[in-house]
Structures are given as C-alpha cells and as structure tokens.
Design a protein around this nucleic acid. Sequence first.
DNA 1: AATTTCGACAACCGCACCCGG
DNA 2: TCCGGGTGCGGTTGTCGAAAT
Length: 214
Amino acid sequence: MRSPCCEKGHTNKGAWTRQEDERLIAYIRVHGEGCWRSLPKAAGLLRCGKSCRLRWINYLRPDVKRGNFTDEEDQLIIKLHSLLGNKWSIIATRLPGRTDNEIKNHWNTQIKRKLLSRGIDPLTHGPIHAQAAIHSIELDRVSSTAVLREKHQELNLELQISLPSTHLDSPPTLQKIDRQVICFYCSLGLQNSKGCTCEGTSCRSIKACQSLST
DNA sequence: AATTTCGACAACCGCACCCGG
DNA sequence: TCCGGGTGCGGTTGTCGAAAT
C-alpha cells in the first residue's frame, strides 16, 4: 500500500491565502522548483506537495499569461485538440503562458459550446448530424456487425481524427519533411512527448527531431 | 431586494508513468 | 527485473460572482 502524499489531517485545503502564495513564491525564488513532497514543510506551508505544485504551475508562475483567450489561441486549441484529443499538457506546450488546466477549463466552458453551436461535435470534430447517424446504426440490433461496417463505409463519415490535408499522404503518425520521416509529435515540436514514435526510425535522436521540427 | 441559476475557474483526487535503488 | 516513491496528467468537484427571475 502506497503512503499518502501528505498527512491529510495536517494540511489546509481549498483556496490559497495571500500569505500562503507569498510563502510559496519566496521559497521557489530561493530554492527553485522540484521536490514537491518536501517543499511544504521546508517552506512552512500546511499544504500537500501536489497542491503547492498545482498552485505554482497554474497561478503563481511568473510566465503565466492571464486574461481572455484570443481567437488565434482558440483556433490553435481546436486544431490541436482535433489532432491530439484531451492531451491538455501537450496542447499547453504550444500555447506559451497558458497552462493545461486553463486550456482544459476554457475548452469545457467555451470552446465546446462554440463548436456545438456550429454543429460540430467537440469530441470528433465532425458534424453532429453524422454522429446521430452512427448512433442510430449502432442501435440497430437487427443488423450484423458486418452490415454495420458496410453502412459505416457507405456513409463515408468524416469523423476520423485525421491530420490536416497537407499531411494526408503520410501514414497516421508519421509525416515526411525534407524527405526524412519524422513522427507527428516531433513535427509539432513535441519531442520527448509520450506519443513520439521516432524510436527506431530515421529520427531516433532528439537532436534530429529538434532540428527537423524547426 | 432576495433568491435561484449559471458560468468560469481554482483546486482536489485518483491513476499512470518514470526512475532510482 | 522488480518495487516503491515522486511526479504529472486528466477528470471531476467546489466555490464564487454575475445574471436572471
């Protein structure tokens, strides 16, 4: 059994106070980020390490951009979400100053609604009426799975999460740039990401990925 | 003016992954 | 190779202020 990340009985919860914020900022200014587990005690905070990390990353970090999202940012989020799904941390790396939590909240409260109002399914990024078609087909118990498959093909639904048209001639996660095959994640500048498939390809080294992605 | 509803966002929780021993 | 601690991620909940009734 894993020990809990903190002694719940001795930690504060809920909104952070100004004093707590100041303590955390002061501590990280001196000691830097890291070792979140021991940070609260060292900084004199009655908080769990996770809570400190979250507070710092999402709110106190000096490079956090606050304020409304621009249309350009919205478009980028929609585009990245259509490619990556709910990989908020990866999406956040493409929006300087924005945190994964902020983007996730913005998606759930605003972008989702915006897409729905345009008749676009926020999950598939395809038209909503096509989703309804799929649903009705799936409910059709009389049909065999083979028939279902046939129907899906007939519908030619544009519901697959696919690469932008410029990448359509490439396999799902790989695309060709300058005649070298690099993985899709690296092409987005996401070397080191979990989805990176460069392992075992001509783009094996991170250096290679970085030089190709720039 | 009081109450209710809704939206935005901060924070929490549990799980999975990574890495060192 | 396995195990356990630390950390990060994504889903969910809680809270608070604004708008509506």
